[in-house]
Amino acid sequence: MRRRVEAIVFAALIQALPATAASPTPDARRSGFDFMTPQVQAMQRDDALNPAMLWVKDGEALWNTEAGSSKRSCAGCHGAAPSSMRGVAARYPAFDEPSGRAVDLRQRINLCRVNRQRADALPFESRDLLSLESFVAIQSRGLLVTPSGDARLQPALERGAAWFRRRIGQLDFSCAQCHDEHSGQRLGGSVIPQAHPTGYPLYRLEWQGLGSLQRRLRNCMTGVRAEPFPYGAPELVELELYLMQRAAGMPLEVPAVRP
């Protein structure tokens, strides 16, 4: 039923699309936080109310736990996370030399696990991986998104920008059509945010749990009836890269809460 309502709304949106529409100017950029109800905002503001802190605490424990045949923990190499991981989440995705491509934060954590700790990679969206990612990311809370500006990322960044504007799925929608041209308006009962990924991994009330940016992107793709890219696909990382570039200069609010 809900799907059908969404389809009708999408159809209505297609007819309402203006001939030209511009991206929000940098000054007009707003976090998804601004579009939420005061109740959900209060959940995010106070760590004692924010259920994502349950994952952060798990991540802190994992950070100090030895893993794999190296018998080393994250802390064994990186030391105290508040200093060594400060600002890391603000500059990812970054260029990975050995593979020659962009990797996001959770892929970096898994590369570290496989290559340094000699442990098995954690599955995407597993509780352990989300916990570690949220613990690393919270060290950058309040810092501004500062993409690395690495020239080797330029092709991936351009592909990400192209994905953002490319119409996909049975509903034939691009990310930009909703999040650039119609942000602030409503889709069904919900406000369309501007899609700035400043709070991931975040606790979504609809999910009743923590989820990554890739989960959110795949959600949107399913919403427009496209086949979502699998977790870890280069296309999703390219989109993440572009979205972080688009949100450059905005403060990180990890771990966020969203409806």
Partner: peptide, 9 residues
Amino acid sequence: IRTLIAHPM
């Protein structure tokens, strides 16, 4: 007093 606990419910 505020309590949060991880549980799927």
